[in-house]
């Protein structure tokens, strides 16, 4: 060691022009690397910590109800009996209807922007669509409450009743707020997500096949179907699932228009609640420990489901993009 130090000193004394004073560049890079790595790791740790703490908080409910929590259809804070089925049902139904409405609309918008509009105009419209996702959830909720709900009650319901009224889905009275209104709000909220991912997916499809289709005497729309829609099918599915992920977790706007009742309504006009909306509504007023824990358990379930839905969606779109680049 002593030798090493003296050697260093000698080198310093000779002051090589290639040696930097103070902290060397190599060390600077090392420090920068450590700091950046620290931040990156922190976010992963945070994710783990959240799951762990959510798990801890829901432990009493897991112990008390076990698996029956998922399939029991009563939610009774007074008797401290909790089953999450009404909320799981509400979440699935609102999200699925939202997807059914939003997916075709978003695909159409994305195709129109990418394939029909001049580039500058297309980007402008794309920007508008993406701005929708910047509108705070509560604004959607208010709009839903004051404009959409009355419209559903007075205009949409009579039409649905006269055409599809024989289905149990469209039976019973409509009060405006309910599952259908929540689904429509959700569909509007997820359109930007699906549209922008679809645009990305369509963009990486090579234009060669489109020209091939045109040269074979296909109309423009046929060429688009053949050369753009068909090869990007899996990517579009990914976009839709990503939209689903957003719909599952959306809270505020849904809580404001769904009616918040822990029941399983066969009719879409009926009131309901979703996993996210029940947490928002009841968390502040839950006074028993088991009620709080049950809400946390719903949170844990929702967290796990949305995590996997998002993971799944991203892996599909990523694969689709990779394939697009290879062709």
């Amino acid at each position: 060691m002593v030798e090493m130090v003296s050697k260093d000193n000698i080198e310093n004394n000779t002051s090589s022009p290639l040696k930097k004073r103070g902290i060397s560049y190599k060390q600077q890079d090392k420090i920068a690397f450590m700091i950046l790595r620290g931040f990156a790791l922190a976010i992963v740790l945070l994710l783990g910590l959240m799951i762990y703490q959510l798990f801890q908080a829901s432990a009493p409910a897991i112990k008390e109800f076990g698996f029956s929590f998922i399939y029991n259809d009563f939610w009774n804070p007074i008797e401290d009996e909790f089953g999450a089925l009404p909320f799981i049902y509400g979440t699935l139904v609102t999200s699925l209807i939202a997807i059914l409405i939003a997916a075709p609309v978003s695909i159409a918008i994305a195709l129109f922007i990418n394939e029909y509009l001049p580039k500058a105009l297309g980007n402008l419209l794309g920007l508008f669509v993406e701005l929708i996702s910047a509108i705070p959830s509560i604004i959607f909720g208010l709009w839903g409450l004051y404009y959409l709900a009355p419209w559903v009650k007075d205009s949409l319901t009579p039409i649905l009743k006269s055409t599809l009224g024989f289905l149990p889905l469209f039976s019973g009275p409509s009060f405006g707020i309910g599952i259908l209104t929540a689904s429509i709000i959700l569909s509007i909220m997820i359109i930007p997500t699906i549209t922008s991912v679809c645009r990305e997916v369509f963009k990486v499809v090579p234009s060669l096949q489109k020209e091939a289709a045109l040269a074979l005497g296909a109309t423009k729309f046929e060429a688009i179907k053949l050369a753009i829609l068909k090869p990007s099918f899996s990517g579009v599915m990914g976009a839709v699932v990503l939209g689903l992920g957003r719909a599952l977790g959306e809270t505020m706007a849904v809580a404001m228009v769904i009616g918040n009742s822990a029941e399983i309504s066969k009719s879409l006009f009926g009131a309901g609640a979703t996993m996210a909306s029940v947490m928002a509504n009841e968390y502040a007023e839950a006074d028993s420990e088991i009620h709080l824990s049950a809400l946390c358990l719903i949170g844990l379930l929702l967290f796990v489901v949305t995590f996997f839905v998002n993971f799944f969606a991203r892996s599909i779109t990523w694969k689709a993009k990779m394939r697009g680049k290879k062709v």
Binding site: P206, L208, Q209, E211, A212, A213, L214, A215, L216, G217, L226, A227, K230, P231, V327
Partner: peptide, 15 residues
């Protein structure tokens, strides 16, 4: 285009 066909520079079968 039904009367005048075209083969392109890069092979472009439909994927």
């Amino acid at each position: 285009r039904k009367h005048i066909g075209m083969v392109f520079q890069k092979p472009n079968p439909f994927p």
